[in-house]
Design a protein around this nucleic acid. Structure first.
Length: 351
DNA sequence: AACTGAGCCAACCGCCGAGAC
DNA sequence: AGTCTCGGCGGTTGGCTCAGT
């Protein structure tokens, strides 16, 4: 049989740690070092689970931890690393001395994600929302041509990050400027459209939210979504759908295939060793995120990414969407509506 | 002063791979 | 070979703080 349980979970203390408990752990670690955490509570005289002791030590008591707030350099580093590896906080934290995965995760969730959204950047894909919508239009089969929605961008004035932080932003800003002029969109319309687009992102961008809450198995998709291939569209005009962008290839491609761009990015991030680490885990993640269109439930989140992948493959192969999955049902219904109301194809909806 | 909602973060939960038994 | 725990990880949550009303 296996090992005996580390502790009686019903009788251990939970919740916030007291200074006395902290002192006991510190004293124990300084005398004995870090070893078997399951023995720490008993030896240190604590009524806590060993796992809880380890967390307390790694997230708060470790002497090498920084207590001060994140610097702008760290902020930029986190954004770049998140773009490269997704929400693999432990990998990101390893590149930031003195920071824990919990620190980075909290900082991202409370500050950086909101900051990016405010800038008009999708925090999951690190692409402008307009780009995400354009891509989303490609997935569902809609043509975005003529839709002023996809030309919208937030005012650059609201940005608080260095312009170099977000790849392609200057290009987007220029394209945005051109598209606004081309389409004679007045400023107030522009801002109103962005408000609409923000609401749409929150409501209709469900699959990204799903992938963002996906744990290890979603990280693969996240990385794919932020791969350099996805930035090729930034060089196109905003009013034109990304004809070169192919989601089926995008989702099926190995995100770690070496390209010049990627090598440059790896160099920029000093992430060569990180890429190796990712490749080690990628095999597992690829198996988990199978492309058979099976939505998997884990920690309350559905893995829509895998479902989309499966559906896209079907579409690209020219087969009907009668498979019966959730996405199949949506697309079937979509087709019905579009067939019944063809005039809707050219309409811009104000939700 | 009391209430409320948002922001923040420490800690917990649940999953996974590795390895002990 | 099968069962179980450990250690690590990412996602989530409970509770504290603080600004606004």
């Amino acid at each position: 049989m296996g090992r005996p349980p580390c502790c009686d979970k019903s009788n251990v203390k939970r919740g916030l740690w007291t200074a006395e408990e902290d002192a006991k752990i510190l004293a124990f670690v300084s005398n004995h070092g870090i070893g078997n955490w399951t023995l720490v509570p008993k030896k240190a005289g604590l009524n806590r689970c060993g796992k809880s002791c380890r967390l307390r030590w790694t997230n708060y008591l470790r002497p090498d931890l920084k207590q001060d707030s994140f610097t702008p350099q760290e902020e930029e580093h986190i954004i770049n690393l998140h773009e490269a590896v997704g929400s693999r906080w432990s990998l990101i934290a390893k590149k930031l001395p003195g920071r824990t995965d919990n620190d980075v995760k909290n900082f991202w969730n409370t500050k950086l994600r909101k900051k990016l959204v405010k800038m008009g950047i999708d925090p999951v894909t690190h692409k402008p929302f307009s780009q995400v919508l354009s891509d989303y239009g490609n997935i569902s089969g809609f043509s975005n041509t003529g839709s002023s929605l996809i030309t919208t961008q937030p005012s650059p004035a609201c940005t608080g990050l260095p312009s170099t932080t977000i790849k392609g932003m200057p290009i987007i800003e220029k394209a945005q400027e051109n598209s606004i002029l081309d389409n004679n969109i007045h400023t107030w319309e522009y801002q109103a459209h962005f408000q609409v687009i923000n609401q749409e992102i929150v409501q209709a961008h469900f699959f990204n939210e799903a992938t963002s809450s996906c744990s290890s198995s979603s990280s693969n998709n996240l990385t794919q979504l932020s791969s350099p291939q996805s930035y090729s569209c930034l060089y196109q005009t905003q009013t034109t759908p990304c004809s070169s962008f192919n989601w089926s290839e995008f989702l099926l491609n190995d995100p770690f295939i070496s390209t010049e761009l990627q090598q440059q990015e790896e160099h920029d991030l000093q992430g060569v060793s990180m890429q190796n680490e990712i490749q080690m885990t990628n095999k597992t993640n690829a198996n988990e995120c199978n492309m058979n269109g099976v939505a998997r439930k884990d920690s309350g989140a559905l893995y829509y990414g895998a479902s989309f992948g499966g559906q896209i493959n079907k579409q690209s192969e020219g087969t009907s969407s009668s498979g019966g999955s959730f996405v199949d049902a949506i697309l079937d219904r979509d087709s019905e509506i579009r067939a019944a109301f063809p005039e809707l194809l050219d309409e811009v909806f104000d939700y």
